[in-house]
Simulated assay, not measured.
Amino acid sequence: MRPPPQPIRTGAVWAGIGLALLGHLMCAGLVAAAIWGAGDAADQALIGGSLLGQLVLFAAVVAAGTVLIVKGDRGLGIGLFIGWATGLIVLPLVGFGLCVALISAS
């Protein structure tokens, strides 16, 4: 017999969101480092690094989030999914705004 499901804790959801957003920021930092070191091949490093980093992050979030939800820590698992989706939408917008600000400042 299964134990009754525990309530979803708000703190755990926020922790999952924070962890997923941190994963997005780490991917962006790794891509920025690759671009800085790539020189002339910066376009290829940007596209390849972004896609590969996001695919790895997606696989990690799906695996960890699913295991957490099945094991009973639904708040953290749901937070990971929410944070990954939010970061996927917000991070490119922030990057675009940063690029526009840098171009207009020069």
Rank of each mutant, 00 (worst) to 15 (best):
R74G: 05
G75F: 00
V62Y: 06
A60S: 07
D40V: 12
L68A: 09
G49R: 00
K71N: 04
I69G: 01
G72W: 00
G77E: 04
Q54K: 02
V67R: 03
D73I: 01
A45L: 05
L80K: 05
G53T: 01
G65F: 01
I69V: 15
A41G: 09
D40M: 11
L68G: 01
Q44V: 13
W36P: 08
I35G: 08
L68F: 04
I47V: 15
A45T: 06
A59R: 01
A42I: 10
D40Y: 08
Q54C: 14
L57K: 03
T66E: 07
L68W: 04
D43I: 08
D40T: 07
L57I: 02
V62S: 11
V56L: 14
V61C: 11
L80Y: 08
V56E: 07
Q44T: 13
F58Q: 01
A45G: 10
A38W: 03
D43L: 14
V67C: 03
G48I: 07
G49Y: 00
A59Q: 05
D43Q: 13
G39I: 07
K71W: 06
R74H: 02
L57E: 06
V56W: 05
G79H: 02
A59L: 13
T66K: 02
A60I: 10
L55N: 09
G72L: 01
R74V: 03
G37F: 15
G49N: 03
G37C: 14
I69F: 01
W36E: 15
V70R: 04
L76M: 10
D73H: 09
A42K: 09
Q44Y: 13
L57M: 11
S50H: 06
V56A: 12
A64L: 14
I78S: 10
A38E: 04
Q54N: 11
G79E: 04
D73P: 06
G75L: 07
S50Q: 13
L76T: 07
A59F: 11
D43T: 14
V61S: 06
G37K: 13
Q54S: 12
G39K: 03
A41P: 07
V62T: 13
V70G: 01
L51D: 11
A59G: 08
G53W: 01
F58L: 15
I35N: 10
G65H: 01
L80T: 05
S50P: 00
Q44I: 12
V62P: 07
D73N: 15
A63I: 03
D40A: 15
G49C: 03
I47R: 08
V61D: 08
T66M: 08
S50A: 10
V56Q: 02
V61H: 00
L57D: 03
G37W: 12
G72A: 03
D73S: 10
S50F: 13
I47S: 12
R74Y: 00
D40P: 12
I35V: 12
A64R: 00
F58D: 14
G48R: 09
G37E: 14
L46C: 05
Q54I: 14
I47D: 06
I35K: 11
G65P: 09
V56C: 08
I47W: 13
L55I: 14
I69Y: 03
L57T: 04
G72H: 00
G39S: 13
A60R: 00
L52P: 00
L76P: 02
R74Q: 05
A63E: 11
G53V: 06
A64W: 10
G65T: 01
I35T: 04
A60T: 10
L57P: 06
G75M: 02
